[in-house]
Deep mutational scan, measured.
Amino acid sequence: KLLSSIEQACDICRLKKLKCSKEKPKCAKCLKNNWECRYSPKTKRSPLTRAHLTEVESRLERLE
């Protein structure tokens, strides 16, 4: 599967780190437990900047 097509777990399953069936409108866990089942939009991760990478590398060197 391509990364862009990976389905996201519902908010509660993601928060509780449960295996989500990803069914809509309610996944199996939410249906069974009568929880409100919501699927928040995916958040875009910002790409690493060179400055951040350099900072992490220098912190790693100090720890070694």
Score class of each variant (00 low, 15 high):
K1T: 00
L2T: 11
L3C: 13
L3N: 15
L3D: 08
S4E: 11
S4R: 15
S4K: 15
S4T: 14
S5D: 10
S5T: 14
I6N: 15
I6S: 13
E7R: 15
E7I: 14
Q8C: 15
Q8L: 11
Q8N: 11
A9E: 09
A9W: 02
A9G: 04
C10I: 02
C10E: 02
C10T: 09
C10W: 04
C10A: 06
C10H: 10
D11A: 07
D11L: 10
D11C: 08
D11P: 10
I12G: 07
I12M: 15
C13P: 02
C13H: 00
C13I: 02
R14Y: 09
L15T: 15
L15W: 01
L15C: 12
L15A: 14
K17L: 04
L18P: 03
C20N: 09
C20D: 11
K22F: 04
E23L: 07
E23Y: 01
K24D: 04
K24N: 06
K24L: 14
K24C: 13
P25M: 00
K26V: 13
K26F: 05
K26Q: 10
C27A: 11
C27W: 01
C27N: 05
A28G: 15
K29H: 10
K29D: 05
K29S: 04
C30R: 04
C30D: 02
L31P: 02
L31F: 10
K32D: 08
K32E: 02
K32R: 09
N33T: 07
N34A: 10
N34I: 00
N34M: 08
W35M: 12
C37H: 00
C37V: 02
C37I: 00
Y39C: 06
Y39H: 02
S40L: 07
S40I: 06
P41N: 10
P41F: 07
P41A: 10
P41W: 06
P41T: 04
K42S: 01
K42C: 06
K42N: 01
T43D: 06
K44R: 11
K44L: 02
K44S: 02
K44M: 10
R45L: 01
S46K: 00
S46Q: 01
P47H: 09
P47F: 09
L48D: 06
L48C: 07
T49S: 06
T49C: 06
T49W: 01
R50C: 08
R50G: 02
H52Q: 00
H52G: 05
L53P: 01
L53Y: 07
L53M: 12
T54I: 07
E55I: 13
E55K: 14
E55A: 13
E55H: 13
V56E: 00
E57L: 02
E57T: 01
S58M: 13
L60K: 05
L60D: 02
E61S: 13
R62A: 00
R62Y: 02
L63K: 13
L63S: 05
L63D: 03
E64G: 02
E64S: 05
E64R: 12
E64A: 07
